[in-house]
Design a protein around this nucleic acid. Structure first.
Lengths: 138, 138
DNA sequence: CGTTAAAATTAAGTAAAACTAACTTTTTAT
DNA sequence: ATAAAAAGTTAGTTTTACTTAATTTTAACG
């Protein structure tokens, strides 16, 4: 009966993961800037994610993803990467728009569609994909 | 400064349009069943859409889309159709999943991506598309 | 050290969308 | 014709996510 993360919480997780890429640590301000929200929103999201065991966060300190949090974030970023690459490389959507659209679609696309997308991308470009996706998302 | 419809209101509009296909009229229960919500949720949505000039609705009577409402609904259904067809015909996603995914993506995909999708579909299948999309959605 | 600026927090409030419960209106079937 | 069933409404609550305003903590520098 463990409930899945909401789209919103996935976004926070993704942003935290992205912010952690440089130095392994994320600050509330990094997340705020990546998502374009205000700091109290971040604080609120952190409480939810900490409750769910996705991260640890002592007040006024760094945000650190747990193993569970890292796994979940990687999964979101994999989805993002597949979508964004597909939109760019197959459809010829501009990188900027592709990124914006991938950011929204990553939360709604089914596993089935995602894997088909992945397969098509592979066949279409010839190039196999690793995912873990590319680093600069969002 | 007219605000765009929320995803939710678009869903209601789409459902009303679908329900109207048979006889031009939609009942609250049709919408409720199509969307899987309770009747008070429908009533609430109708108030919002009526306020926005998308439909008229006298209490305990039929729901009727205005010209504006019909236009907006057609637009949603066009997006739905393109997405659903793309997923099925190009990617080989099962019709059921394609429909579910299209229902969610139709609210988030940019115009740019949508048109690229449309172009690709056309080239890929050879068959040109009309949109107005196919009637049985959702 | 002590003050200040930046970062983060809590508190309180708004808004959308859903729900339940209780009620009213309309339709249907005897 | 009327009573039961179906359809619809209103009112009030809940959840999620955001906001602004006021406060606290940390860090940085003279």
């Amino acid at each position: 009966m463990k409930k899945p993360l909401s789209s919103n919480m996935e976004d926070y997780l993704e942003a935290i993961s992205l912010a952690s890429d440089k130095d392994g640590l994320a600050r509330v301000t990094d997340v705020r800037d990546l998502l374009g929200v205000k700091t109290p929103s971040v604080t609120g999201a952190l409480r939810v994610l900490a409750d769910g065991g996705y991260l640890t966060h002592e007040p006024y300190r760094w945000v650190i993803l747990t193993a569970k949090g890292r796994r979940a974030a990687e999964d979101v970023r994999r989805r993002h990467g597949i979508l964004s690459n597909f939109l760019c490389e197959v459809l010829g959507v501009s990188p900027k728009t592709a990124n914006i659209d991938a950011c929204k679609m990553e939360h709604t696309v089914s596993r089935e569609t995602l894997e088909k997308l992945h397969d098509f991308l592979h066949k279409y470009t010839g190039r196999p994909r690793h995912y873990t996706p590319d680093k600069k998302g969002k």
